[in-house]
């Protein structure tokens, strides 16, 4: 059996769990092993019902006083006890901060192998797990040795949520009880730290319309905003625009602003100075509109339009709307 350890808090499932389910289904398909999802923590029921939609053999909830609030001692003890009852060959987890906290301890406690931050699985014979090494300069294919279960954690985003197969009907949900001495938990967690949130988090935006000096004057920002609205995109800007106060500083993209990686980055009148490029080079598709055919932005644009953005943008808005 392949066990996926889901991550949830107060019944809200971490979406990365679905990525791990997708990985488990691939591994299970190759190894011919059924997949079970273990949902630990208080109010696991809600999250369990959600993952029951997946094409898995069963969903197992694990509720215990030692699991709430989260502590590495509590998780290690409860999961060790649970895994003793399950005949798992692999235990898969999303490589979240919480997993990073307890998974090495759990594997060490059980004296089993752990492979972390895996980006893909090479099947065929013994499955090999591919993980980056030396800051991503190399990748290694790692095959776990020793007795099962083998622990594997998956890099966030390595598998896609929408690749997790749904079942014809909801999978069976059962509860597992474990006997853990809650007094062995040494950590006493404080209330979670809330980092002051940046009002605009451009790093999560799927589409960004970004404005540069080519917009000419502050009143013209409205043109870009219209396009952003039509595309359902966030608006952003290069340094001179934010320095001039035409858009708030938190919308600045670049080495002295935010680093973004949207699916679509539409650069309007941005020349593409290096300190801007480094903030958006991770964008999947870059569309640049600029008057100057020599503008460096065209070096990295997937689609470049040389021309007057005040003619081109309204045309795009029309095209998007129809």
């Amino acid at each position: 059996m392949i066990v996926v350890v889901a991550e949830q808090r107060g019944g809200a499932l971490n979406r990365a769990t679905w990525e791990t389910i997708a990985a488990a289904q691939q591994l299970g398909g190759a190894a011919g092993a059924p997949v079970a999802v273990l949902v630990p923590g208080a109010r696991a029921g809600a999250a369990a019902n959600e993952v029951a939609a997946a094409d898995v053999q069963e969903v197992i909830t694990l509720e215990h006083a030692a699991l709430e609030p989260y502590t590495p001692d509590g998780f290690t003890a409860a999961l060790e006890a649970a895994l003793e009852q399950l005949d798992a060959r692999y235990v898969l987890m999303p490589h979240t901060y919480q997993t990073r906290d307890f998974a090495p301890k759990l594997a060490a406690r059980m004296d089993r192998a752990i492979i972390t931050d895996v980006t893909s699985i090479k099947s065929g014979g013994e499955p090999a797990f591919v993980r980056p090494m030396f800051q991503g300069k190399l990748t290694a294919d790692v095959v776990p040795q020793g007795p099962a279960p083998h622990f594997v954690t998956f890099q966030i985003g390595a598998y896609r949520v929408d690749h997790a197969k749904k079942g014809a009907s909801a999978a069976r949900v059962r509860a597992l009880t474990v006997d853990v001495d809650a007094s062995t938990v040494r950590e006493k967690p404080e209330a979670p730290f809330q980092q002051a949130k940046q009002a605009v988090d451009l790093s999560q935006a799927e589409r960004i319309v970004s404005v540069g000096r080519g917009i000419k004057e502050q009143a013209n920002i409205a043109v870009a905003e219209k396009l952003a609205q039509a595309l359902g995109a966030e608006i952003a800007a290069s340094r001179p625009i934010c320095d001039a106060g035409w858009l708030p500083m938190e919308r600045q993209v670049g080495s002295s602003g935010q680093t973004v990686a949207p699916k679509l980055y539409l650069a309007l009148g941005i020349s593409g100075a290096i300190q801007h490029l480094v903030g958006m080079k991770g964008s999947s598709t870059v569309v640049a509109i600029n008057k100057d055919p020599d503008a460096p932005i065209f070096e990295i644009a997937d689609y470049g339009i040389v021309g007057d953005l005040f003619e081109i943008v309204p045309a795009i808005i029309d095209a998007v709307k129809t």
């Binding site: 934010c242 320095d243 500083m249 600045q252 002295s256 300190q275």
Partner: peptide, 16 residues
């Protein structure tokens, strides 16, 4: 300071 944004650089920009 090439990497500081304007809020991290109070006063006027030195470059300005």
């Amino acid at each position: 300071l090439l990497f500081a944004d304007k809020e991290e650089e109070p006063g006027s920009r030195i470059s300005d």
